[in-house]
Write a protein that binds this DNA or RNA. Sequence first.
DNA 1: CAGTGGTCTAGACCACAGG
DNA 2: CTGTGGTCTAGACCACTGA
Lengths: 245, 245
Amino acid sequence: MSLELIRPKTLTEQVNLILRERIHDKTYPPGGRLPSEVELSEEFGVSRSTIRSALSRLAAEGLLLRKHGNGTYINSRLQGVNTNWGGLWEFGELIEKNGYQVAIKLLNIEKKPAKGNISLELNVPEGEEVVELQRLFFADDHPVILVKNFIPAKYLMNLSNHIDGQLSLREITEQYTRVRIAYAISSVRATLARDEIAVILEKNPDSPLLNLEITFYDINNIPIVTGSSYYDDTVLNLRLVQAWQ
Amino acid sequence: MSLELIRPKTLTEQVNLILRERIHDKTYPPGGRLPSEVELSEEFGVSRSTIRSALSRLAAEGLLLRKHGNGTYINSRLQGVNTNWGGLWEFGELIEKNGYQVAIKLLNIEKKPAKGNISLELNVPEGEEVVELQRLFFADDHPVILVKNFIPAKYLMNLSNHIDGQLSLREITEQYTRVRIAYAISSVRATLARDEIAVILEKNPDSPLLNLEITFYDINNIPIVTGSSYYDDTVLNLRLVQAWQ
DNA sequence: CAGTGGTCTAGACCACAGG
DNA sequence: CTGTGGTCTAGACCACTGA
């Protein structure tokens, strides 16, 4: 009994997605045991190593718990509520995974000359054009996260004086630039809601807010996007899962 | 030319450690190119797959940048200043990696009956004994992080009414319990320095502080340790690196 | 003991970069 | 074109768990 897998994408990734889906829709119930690696490799018609790569990735995210000599189990603690690393930048997904309705409001988009910190972070001379994108994320109509992103105009392709404000950062870089993000460095701080920010996020002045500063780099270590976010953790708890090692 | 590798540990892990060391001591200089996978596999006398596992792990941490068809490069942006995920709980390492002198002061250690939140988080009936460990981390003599940890007394082995306050959480669980940590869930919040905490961290009252709540689980999804930390990000910036996927 | 996951190998083939 | 990293396989052997 071997399923039909499309070759274009890697086998590992397809297996990964299918298993993820089965966990999500509870074909494999929380706390339950997965078929053994050999059984899965027979079901999918791929080698055991391929199955293992897919499983390892899910285990690293905390979705699966692997017990040597015993079996692979679905982590019952992560149902519905949670997120892994991506939580630091894929805010839309984060909000959805926590069971809220997502809405994204595009507050502003404009070309500006780079200056100060932005110019430094993006390694672009002062005065060169960058596109600023300011967005507000809502969870069930509560404003939760205010995000400003900056992309040097030179990385954006032709046509696009317009950017679709509903897209995730991943999608934006994929659709509007020719470069690919390889990794990101984020710094996390606690701050107080300044006037303007307090108003937008509907907070009392000087309420504590999380501040996330993130810069994305491509494979050549060139900064592609930088951004600054203010995150109201009283509406949406920022939770991260990580396997011990 | 094949190096002598000890068999007891896994080959992959040994290769990983050696490469990590070479990056750290700049045998492989920042921005430079690593020997190819085939060359490394010859040098270490192991298969290419083994080399690849070691490299993949380093790449996932952002230490290496892999360029298809070209080579593997040392990420020059991470020299000295930075940390990956472990930064959320291995505070000693975090402080060291940022170039400060670490000191840990044991403020308090005592057995208490579990109550409220702690009892819930640790899934232990109210009134059962837990050990509370309160510690203060210093970076170059500045108090930076205040940590309270709770471990159910039943997981601690015999002799140990005494816990060495200088150890990392990983070392504590390894040395004093029979269980092994499989994964952790952390939640990150922004808070204001309350009276007592402000005093200990030498902050003005109501300064913003990061609050990290972490619970560690074993492979059977049983909570082993929980803890609450207050982190002064003005002294030590909390930076996280993550590969895009 | 049988069944599970963990490590490792040798080798094939592919996809991509750069001369 | 050559050399690099990326994917995949088949198979061996080991280490651990639970009956």
